[in-house]
């Protein structure tokens, strides 16, 4: 549960107004070409970081996503022959600031910053740039960064919605968790889902939508879904349940199973290792989740820094492709996720 929760919290913090501007820019299509050009797997050979020091500052590594992205960066810096100065602030803003302050004095060849609180970090991002150190970020949108490497949330939202509509035969009532529309990544995934549903008028969202909460996400989702199932006792009256992340879906799956409503299929716009296990379980109603690849994101951020240090241009954003995991492909894609499952 912690990975998705952590992701949510961090992304809430990370994405600010600045991000919204960037999102608008990305939507305008300016970034799309760059995105394809900077896919994760096409790092040209010879992008050496030999003799280079790369500072890596992360606000914390206590969540699955954060830790994997952090480790991905360290491993890639070493693989390319560089020296990582890797700093984990233990989820403390003040500590991260102190580490960045000392890092600036160390004058590394580049600094990669992952998540954290943009409002707190912004003045320090400026100090990094003033000191002439190139700044790269992981899942943190800021105009100070040369490149931000992250997942493509538009694609995630759209892909999942299409899968859901297909699975339920383009008709039926769906339960939607929408408690975190204030979190930009959730808003993007939700809006993409709505955009898909617009063309399938027979798929209806049950009103009012449910509110997923933090903490007690699983328990709360369980009781909310149980209530709706009680109100809609007829089999087939509900076709699917959707949430922008995995944790409420875990509670919803328990409620669906307890109510013996096996016809209902569940979908999550983001996931952690626990959700993949639910997909693997043939009797579990979770049908599809989107999996991000944090290790790959970390690696790609380093590759972008390496490109820049070797005189190549890098796009402002790099989207690392996500993977949709379904009951059909789960065994096949498990290894590809790089989650060590």
């Amino acid at each position: 549960m912690s990975d998705a929760k952590g992701l949510k919290i961090e992304q809430t913090k990370a994405i600010s107004l600045v991000t919204k501007a960037a999102i608008a820019l990305a939507l305008s299509g300016g970034v799309i070409a760059a995105t394809t050009a900077a896919r994760a797997d096409d790092v040209p050979a010879g992008l050496s970081l030999k003799g280079k020091t790369i500072g890596i500052s992360v606000v914390g590594t206590d969540h699955f996503w954060d830790l994997k992205a952090y480790q991905g960066q360290i491993a890639e810096v070493k693989r390319l022959g560089g020296t990582p100065v890797a700093l984990d602030a233990g989820r403390k803003d003040a500590k991260q600031i102190a580490q960045i302050q000392t890092l600036i004095a160390q004058k590394p060849d580049a600094i990669i910053e992952q998540l954290g609180n943009v409002k707190v970090l912004d003045p320090w991002f400026k100090k990094i740039r003033t000191a002439g150190i190139p700044l790269f970020t992981v899942d943190t949108a800021t105009p100070q960064a040369i490149n931000d490497t992250t997942s493509n949330n538009w694609e995630m939202g759209e892909e999942l919605a299409v899968q859901m509509v297909q699975d339920i035969g383009a008709k039926g009532n769906i339960i939607v968790f929408n408690g975190f529309y204030s979190v930009p990544v959730c808003a993007i995934r939700y809006d993409e889902m709505r955009a898909v549903l617009k063309y399938y008028p027979d798929v209806k969202i049950i009103q009012p939508e449910l509110r997923d909460v933090i903490p007690n996400t699983v328990q709360s989702a369980y009781s909310e879904v149980t209530d709706i199932l009680t109100k809609n006792p007829k089999k087939g009256s509900i076709a699917a349940i959707w949430a922008c992340w995995g944790v409420p879906i875990e509670g919803a799956a328990q409620a669906v199973q307890a109510a013996k409503r096996d016809e209902i299929k569940l979908y999550a716009g983001d996931s952690g290792p626990d959700d993949i296990k639910l997909i693997e379980d043939k009797n579990n109603p979770v049908a599809a989740v989107i999996a991000q690849r944090p290790t790959e994101i970390g690696k790609t951020a380093v590759d972008n820094a390496a490109r820049h240090l070797n005189g190549q241009s890098v796009p402002s954003f790099t989207f690392v492709p996500t993977i949709m995991v379904t009951k059909a492909n789960v065994q096949e894609v498990k290894d590809k996720l790089g989650w060590g499952l």
């Binding site: 989820r91 403390k92 803003d93 003040a94 600031i97 609180n117 409002k119 707190v120 912004d122 003045p123």
Partner: peptide, 16 residues
């Protein structure tokens, strides 16, 4: 000092 350093008030003061 903390507000000046963190450009505002940020949770986690008790970690000190």
């Amino acid at each position: 000092l903390s507000v000046a350093r963190l450009s505002g008030s940020s949770p986690g003061a008790n970690d000190n």
